[in-house]
Amino acid sequence: MKWFFKILVLSLMLQSFQCTDTNDSSDTITAAQLETKKQEIQNYINSFSCSDSVGCGYIAFGSKPCGGPWSYLVFSNSIDLAKLQKMVKNYNEMNKLYNSQAGIFSDCMIVMPPKEVKCINGVCTAIN
């Protein structure tokens, strides 16, 4: 009976130390989901035109595994900046999670922001 009790206690202890998979399959980010979000953001940006009086801006976009953005998006200052920032923040968080889940790696080079952004023919353009 003592052996039975010891085995029971030992098995309960071992179960409490089991590794559990904390990644719920519903939390898994796919490349297709990222592409869809990216296209939504790009479509939103493209729905605004610029002019010399309105001007343009840029925002860091994506999340490299080594840190920093993959690129910068340029946009018209007539955009709802708070909405764009929220959309980009959500995308960047998804991208960071995707990198971790998929084992993505990068060159770790720093992507510099545009030196200047200008409105050219109604379209915000990065000048490097």
Results as ranks from 00 to 15, higher is better:
41 I>N: 07
108 C>L: 12
77 N>S: 10
12 L>D: 00
73 L>K: 02
98 Y>F: 15
58 Y>F: 14
25 S>Y: 10
58 Y>W: 12
71 S>T: 14
43 N>F: 06
117 V>Y: 03
45 I>N: 06
128 N>Q: 09
44 Y>Q: 06
6 K>W: 13
77 N>W: 08
128 N>V: 06
40 E>W: 04
27 D>H: 07
79 I>V: 12
23 N>R: 07
17 F>K: 11
57 G>E: 01
17 F>G: 14
32 A>Q: 13
77 N>M: 13
62 G>P: 08
116 E>C: 08
48 F>K: 06
109 M>H: 04
53 S>I: 11
86 K>I: 00
56 C>F: 07
125 T>N: 04
89 K>N: 13
87 M>L: 14
7 I>P: 00
13 M>C: 15
79 I>N: 05
126 A>K: 06
77 N>C: 10
14 L>G: 14
13 M>R: 01
109 M>Q: 07
69 P>C: 04
105 F>V: 12
121 N>P: 03
23 N>H: 01
82 A>L: 01
95 N>M: 03
25 S>K: 15
96 K>T: 07
108 C>S: 08
88 V>M: 06
24 D>A: 00
44 Y>A: 04
55 G>Q: 03
98 Y>H: 14
84 L>T: 00
2 K>L: 14
15 Q>R: 03
94 M>V: 02
80 D>I: 01
69 P>Q: 12
83 K>T: 14
11 S>A: 15
99 N>A: 15
7 I>L: 11
96 K>Q: 13
67 G>E: 09
105 F>P: 00
70 W>L: 12
85 Q>K: 15
56 C>M: 09
100 S>T: 06
11 S>D: 01
66 C>G: 15
54 V>E: 08
68 G>Y: 13
93 E>D: 15
91 Y>G: 02
84 L>Y: 01
71 S>A: 10
24 D>V: 00
116 E>V: 05
6 K>P: 00
80 D>Q: 11
109 M>C: 01
20 T>K: 15
47 S>F: 03
9 V>Y: 04
106 S>W: 12
116 E>M: 12
68 G>D: 14
116 E>A: 06
88 V>T: 10
24 D>I: 02
112 M>T: 00
32 A>G: 04
83 K>E: 13
111 V>K: 09
117 V>H: 03
59 I>R: 10
77 N>G: 07
120 I>P: 06
50 C>L: 07
64 K>L: 03
76 S>F: 09
29 I>L: 11
44 Y>M: 09
1 M>P: 07
108 C>Y: 06
70 W>N: 13
38 K>F: 13
101 Q>K: 04
23 N>M: 07
68 G>H: 13
